[in-house]
Design a protein around this nucleic acid. Structure first.
Ligand code: SF4
Ligand code: SF4
Lengths: 149, 149
DNA sequence: CCAATAATAGACTAAAGAGTCCGAAATCTG
DNA sequence: CAGATTTCGGACTCTTTAGTCTATTATTGG
């Protein structure tokens, strides 16, 4: 709907990483297991995130990945940008040439406002805040819903 | 981003049809030409729209398609529903199981509001109003931007 | 009825997205 | 240094979406 599968996975992992308060590296394998993401696929995604300077990575035993910067300095927007790119946000809803030069179709304004909303959602708060939100206990991320039932 | 290619085409055509105030049938070929959509592809799309009761169609000479109901009784939501379905609107942004049972992740509220916005955009106004908007002259749909330049 | 026309249906091809596999290269341990 | 471990890179397969082609059916006009 809004993000590619790779984008979704990237967000999940980065959120997971921020909320996990690990000190060292976490292996991609472990992340894949925890988040139930195909390992090799996630491998690639982490590669892109590393290249984009969002993750640090180290090979070999005791290696893995971790956030490259303090979580408070990373926005979700960076993450989706690194994976999906931001082109989609410049596109017309109807797939036409962008015609915002004063001749908008009836949907343009509404759509534009929605896009702004998404961008705001992605850039408004940083990973740190979201992680705090997670850690405060009234939110979950893992698929396994509290097995209390 | 938001709709499939087929969905985008469907919206274009239906909007075009509503604004074109044709009395009889319009051939799919003509629609495809005007909107610059692959003919055979649009053929299928119109098929689905016809099955969904949004278009009427007639074979043979002087045949073609036309809106099955007055434009004021058709919403964009019906159109995308007929083509893309509405499943995407029930999905979680992160691709997880929906967990709105009181344990929302930090993005849920924001995303939910955005989805509502899209649905409102699609269902809020009917084809007739949009067509009027088009006809009033301050909006365009065709790709060929006013060749005044 | 006959021929032309246009939608309909379904098989088919092309391209993109999602996911897998394997062979490096780097890093740690001993 | 040897061997285990883990990321990195590219090639590969599978699935879905996009787009093409062909045959069929219904309709109109002569
Ligand atoms: S005005 Fe309408 S057709 Fe043009 S870019 Fe905006 S949404 Fe698309
Ligand atoms: S709460 Fe978060 S993870 Fe759960 S369905 Fe909503 S957006 Fe998705």
């Amino acid at each position: 709907m809004l993000f590619s599968k790779a984008g979704e996975y990237g967000l999940q992992v980065v959120l997971h990483l921020a909320a996990g308060q690990h000190d060292g590296f976490v292996t991609v394998r472990e992340l894949a297991d925890r988040c139930d993401i195909p390992f090799h696929f996630l491998s690639k995604i982490c590669g892109r995130l590393a290249q984009a300077g969002i993750l640090h990575s180290s090979k070999g035993p005791a290696g893995g990945v971790c956030l490259a910067r303090p979580a408070t300095g990373i926005t979700l927007l960076e993450v989706v940008q690194a994976i999906d790119g931001l082109d989609g946000f410049d596109r017309c809803v109807l797939g036409l040439e962008p015609c915002d030069d004063g001749l908008p179709c009836p949907m343009h304004d509404h759509w534009h406002r929605l896009k702004e909303g998404v961008l705001e959602m992605l850039s408004g708060r940083n990973l740190g805040e979201l992680a705090d939100d997670l850690l405060s206990g009234n939110t979950t991320l893992n698929k396994e819903k509290t097995p209390a039932g």
